[in-house]
């Protein structure tokens, strides 16, 4: 068994055991938020990190997943067993419709198109009051909809979904698709010259990333009971992007570390919470300039340095003899 798989298993089981023994609601809440953010970041990492296509509109898919499931359940009285898959399918369809034309674009143009998409969703969520409730939002009584048993066990649902999605990401990385998208990221023309249909793979990853966001949205609604358009604005999209950058672009474990860091940062900045978004902005700049590989790169650097030191001492000792 590989180390990374073992690590996933250990973290997963310890999170579940922690959920059983701990009664500290604050910690559980923080862990749940970390997992939601990690799902969002992993989804963006599939598009941005692995496939190399920037997306600054992830909050749009997050919103579509959240609002669709909430509206289907609350306004139409549909069971969550049907509402959740429909929210995911709708998000996937929208992602495909948007993705097919815009993934032909590159660089700035793609960034702008995804920003526009995010802004459209945000504005619709604010202004389409008859469906979304505008600034008042949609209220989702999780206990009534899920039943009291599942609602009380929501923590375990979130942990299991999070771990499963992480495993999917790891498997995608080393699968046929994963190799194809890495080829596309490195050199699009080169990839198509050896028969990789780059547009197909880009759209597939865009849709999968959007599905991740939708899942995070669905979880968020049922955890927080209420959603407002402010949750899904541009800043959220940038925050998701930031978790990927700070964690380490293209590294699944790094991205998870990034979301842990970004989620905990406001808790650490407790005294001056007002500054947290400012701190985020400064962190992005510093990370881009001084730490382009993110936390993942930093950890690898530290491990390599330690290895070198140990090896160096070992060599000296041996030579001394």
């Amino acid at each position: 068994m590989k180390i990374s798989k073992l690590l996933t298993l250990v973290i997963g089981t310890s999170l579940i055991i922690f959920g059983i023994i701990s009664s500290n609601l604050y910690f559980l809440q923080v862990i749940q938020m970390i997992i939601i953010n990690a799902i969002l970041a992993l989804g963006l990492n599939l598009i941005f990190g692995h496939t190399g296509q920037i997306s600054i509109g992830q909050a749009g898919f997050y919103a579509i997943g959240a609002y669709t499931s909430a509206i289907l359940e609350v306004k139409f009285g549909i069971s969550f067993l049907l509402a959740w898959p429909s929210a995911i399918v709708l998000t996937a369809i929208i992602a495909a419709i948007i993705g097919i034309p815009i993934l032909k674009l590159h660089g700035h143009y793609l960034a702008m198109a995804t920003i526009a998409f995010g802004m459209i969703v945000e504005t619709m969520a604010t202004n389409w009051i008859s469906i979304t409730g505008g600034h008042a939002g949609v209220y989702v009584p999780a206990e009534n909809i899920l039943g009291s048993f599942i609602a009380s066990k929501m923590y375990f649902v979130i942990v299991i979904v999070g771990i499963l999605l992480y495993i999917i990401c790891e498997n995608i990385e080393y699968s046929r698709v994963g190799r194809a998208i890495r080829a596309v990221r490195e050199d699009e023309n080169g990839a198509s010259s050896i028969g990789i249909k780059h547009s197909k793979y880009k759209v597939i990853m865009f849709v999968v990333g959007a599905i991740f966001s939708a899942i995070a949205g669905i979880i968020y609604v049922h955890l927080n009971s209420v959603i407002t358009p402010e949750v899904f604005n541009m800043e959220t999209s940038i925050l998701i992007l930031m978790m990927v950058i700070v964690g380490g672009i293209g590294s699944n474990i790094g991205v998870v570390l990034g979301s842990v860091f970004i989620t905990l940062l406001p808790e650490l900045l407790y005294g001056f919470l007002e500054y947290n978004i400012l701190v985020y902005g400064i962190l992005i700049c510093l990370s881009l300039i001084f730490l382009p590989q993110g936390l993942h790169g930093l950890i690898i650097y530290v491990i390599e340095t330690i290895k070198k030191l140990i090896y160096y001492n070992y060599k000296i000792e041996n030579e001394g003899e």
């Binding site: 941005f48 920037i54 500054y275 978004i277 881009l288």
Partner: peptide
């Protein structure tokens, strides 16, 4: 740095300006 770094860096500058 690759192009996307510049895109994100300018976005971050925007955040810094508006928050300041």
């Amino acid at each position: 740095a690759p192009l996307f770094s510049k895109i994100i860096a300018t976005l971050a500058v925007g955040i810094i300006l508006s928050q300041s």
